[in-house]
Design a protein around this nucleic acid. Structure first.
Lengths: 218, 218, 218, 218
DNA sequence: CATGAATGAGTGTTCATTCAT
DNA sequence: TATGAATGAACACTCATTCAT
């Protein structure tokens, strides 16, 4: 039983190392030997924990998605309405080192998924899951009366997706293109547009500083 | 006299073949031998026209950017104001097979540019050029009095970039996610927002069908 | 008829260019394309003058040997006895740029001849020819009474061969190892040893400056 | 525990195989695949022990020099004066299969060092080391009063170098040119010249048979 | 479990050669 | 005659994977 825990811990340790390698060398530059070096294990040892290179990479993506989803669910549990929505989006924007790294890894897999059907399935499935979560967050905000009627829930989700994907692409291409502050401003602009012309009840929009403080200088 | 070939034409022929290979196999799955097979020449022949693999790939990106820029410049010459702006954006959206292919290629290079400094330079430079062109288009529309004051020119350009990059990502991940019709609708919604509350003179927004007709079924 | 002359001139022009390439890049680094570049002709043109790469190289060695032999024969015609002998040896020592270059080329072919039987035949044959010429020079000096009886003619030839080959090796390994002055001193020491305890008649040994003057600073 | 191999032994095993390949095919004909075949390992395995082809070749030269130096140092420890000097020279002459092979390898590297600066450095450095060893041997013989005053120590070293390099060249060009017996005779003649007109004490010159017996028929 | 030795397929590249113009 | 386009073999090297210890 403790061995199982150890086994899983070892796997995650290796997968976190693989994130660093993927960002540094790219998905194709990522070799078993480099993974071994970065994780501190011999390349033969990796074979004990993963079926092969593809298994490592797929697991690395999977772990990343589970980690991000966990963060988002935590916000879901701690916040409500449009604030929960904001927190979820914030987790998906490349606002600091960690989230930029996630965007870089994500994009690596997006590209690889173009030519790897099995990976494509997983990527599309995880994307759908994220959209469902986003849809749920929007629905909650809608139910709380914090969204105006300009856009449908589906359109709102789509606007968020474009914001996230667009800003991720920009951050990956050049970190200086859209700094965290501007990312936050764009998110707030979008949120304001969705909540515009609502009654006073929409307090969260008047004081977004708490959330902004999460943005760490990189 | 030796056999006379149009060196530049041959190069473009090979580069167009390389586009197909890149989309089919990915940038890393693209081998010299596959390029040779697709272009119909032996792999040794490619050495006559390119310094090496990297040269082929960089040239393939370059040709794509020059082709797209030419299309955009043509619209710039034929249209005015917000209509020119619309046409430019339309060229950048993955609305048909060709433009989807371009988006796929583009994204392959975005990812590779993360780990290849020389490529990064080129990608960022070309991206800047596109933003400048977009900025010019926005300025023209502004001068024509076709844009309202809700957003600054810079913000408008950014909104377009997010639309383009976001829709490109979605199209690459799954063609069915956001079909051409929906892409067009989202573009028109954005254009309407930018031109909203303007006087009647803004005729181009009342009849966007001409442009929509460009969207080819894929 | 004039075409024949032109043909032969063209060949020699190319072969002289090949000498430079061989020294610069080594016999294996010498490519047809480099030969074409150095000679100023296209690589396709070389095929008109030579059967292939091996033919160019073999011809380059042949031309060098014919050129050196011609120089030696000229000295043979102009000098007598031990002075002729001295002049022949001087032609074979790496005393200036040109003769160093010859030594470098020679050594390249020596090594290649180890593994190329056809080349080995030629190299050994030319070496034999040189030894015969040297033997004749020694015989003449002997007949002129300018050599003592310490060593047989054959031994004398061998001593000269060791001097030439040894100094050639040293010059090729490091130009500074045995500068021209020292080479000349060693030759004169050897000559003095061969002529030692002879009567006054051996005038040439008293005034070797004329020959030394041929040594050009490199 | 993985299969345990003596890394250094394996390296030497491969390097010894590389000697054979170099002599058989020449330094440029020596391919990784041929090295693999000759050593009995796959070409991929060589990568475990060497960085690349150049590393194999440089190491092959290095091992040869270390082996030869070890043999010479052994003679140095076991003999004195002119006899030690003789033994050192004997190790450097192409008197049997092994030492001929060494001369062939050496000459291959001499030629390659012309165009490979890093190799040139090594070759010149090792040559200097050999000259220093020779100089020490001469000095010892001088101190033992076994050398006459005709030549300075430096000149004596140079004479030996010419003998070694000259005979090596001849042996490489054609094995029959100067058979072992003649090589020995030439060495003894040189030694006699250096020790001539000395008192009776110079016994080693009276009985050189012991050393001659080392010459193995090839 | 853990190691690293061993393998061979596949890569980009170079090159001598052939051949149509 | 002169050119350079075209070819495919051979090269060094990298790598994921297997397996004996």
């Amino acid at each position: 039983m403790p061995k199982i825990v150890n086994h899983e811990m070892r796997r995650e340790e290796i997968l976190e190392a693989s994130w660093r390698v993927i960002v540094r060398l790219g998905l194709d530059g990522t070799t078993i030997r480099e993974l071994a070096k970065e994780s501190g294990y011999s390349h033969g040892t990796l074979a004990h924990y993963f079926k092969g290179k593809e298994d490592v990479l797929a697991s690395a993506l999977d772990l990343q998605h589970r980690r991000i989803a966990a963060r988002m669910r935590r916000h879901f549990a701690e916040s409500n309405g449009i604030e929960a929505l904001r927190q979820v989006i914030l987790e998906a924007l490349p606002l600091d080192r960690q989230r930029l790294l996630e965007a870089q890894i994500e994009m690596n897999f997006w590209v690889r998924s173009m030519t790897t059907p099995s990976l494509r399935e997983r990527v599309v499935a995880d994307l759908s899951a994220f959209r469902r979560l986003l849809t749920r967050a929007v629905a909650h905000a809608r139910e709380a009366g914090e969204l105006n009627d300009e856009l449908s829930d589906e359109d709102i989700v789509h606007e968020f997706m474009l914001l996230i994907d667009g800003l991720s692409v920009e951050a990956v291409l050049s970190e200086d293109l859209t700094p965290p502050k501007r990312q936050l401003a764009m998110l707030e602009r979008l949120l304001r547009r969705l909540a515009d012309r609502l009654t006073r009840s929409d307090i969260s929009l008047d004081d977004p500083d708490a959330s902004r403080s999460r943005a760490v200088k990189r």
